[in-house]
Amino acid sequence: MTVKHHPSEAVLFAYAAGGLGEGLSLLVAAHLSFCPSCRRSVAEAEAVGGVMMEEIAPVAVRPDSLDRVLANLDGAPVPNRAATPAPPRPTPASAARSTDTPPLPSVLSAYVGDLSGARWQWVAPGVRQLDLVHRAQGRDSAKLLRIAPGRVLPHHGHAGLEMTVVLSGSFTDEQGRFTRGDLAELDSDAQHQPIADSGEDCICLIGTDAPLRFSGLVPRMMAPMLGF
């Protein structure tokens, strides 16, 4: 499987720097699970962070700081992860037994278990959603969308950054065709209208750092239903 659509360098940088909220970070982490070349880029951006840490003007710690840490060193060390088998997980997303959907990246398992038992909310004909990260007055959100074949997500613009990662099926929008692992990134000036374009449901993860703006009367009525 080759991933064709990647996040911009700026987004990878922001992820490495810790500048993205949890929702958008989840989108990037999902894409990274499919994409070795972006994992390499994030490692490089983290190395830039290491240089930045070396170059910062140091600020003296309190005189008793070291002693306080030394007094706590007796806590059990964390063993080398390679030396210990991974603990069994209750319902890893990647072990989902659903026959019609390929395994989800396991980074999602902290947010959603087996999709076959998921309680999808109806949004519009052929469109269902599952909230994963939702902040009441927070910076960003992430949710799963399940779009039936041939269905169109309402035309929308948005104030901030929006990203979509395809987990199953595919969609096409103005930027091209997106399949499993691909990430679509849209800035505030972009408008797009993804269409689920294969014979199966398109399941995608969608995240924004600001509310979506739906254009046109009917879509505007749908915005509250989508909960963005």
Binding site: E22, A29, S33, R39, A86, S106, V107, A110
Partner: peptide, 16 residues
């Protein structure tokens, strides 16, 4: 907040 990162034990990451 949590910081989502790809899981090193994820079978999707295998084969690198």
């Amino acid at each position: 907040e949590r910081r989502p990162e790809p899981d090193a034990d994820d079978p999707l990451l295998a084969g690198e």
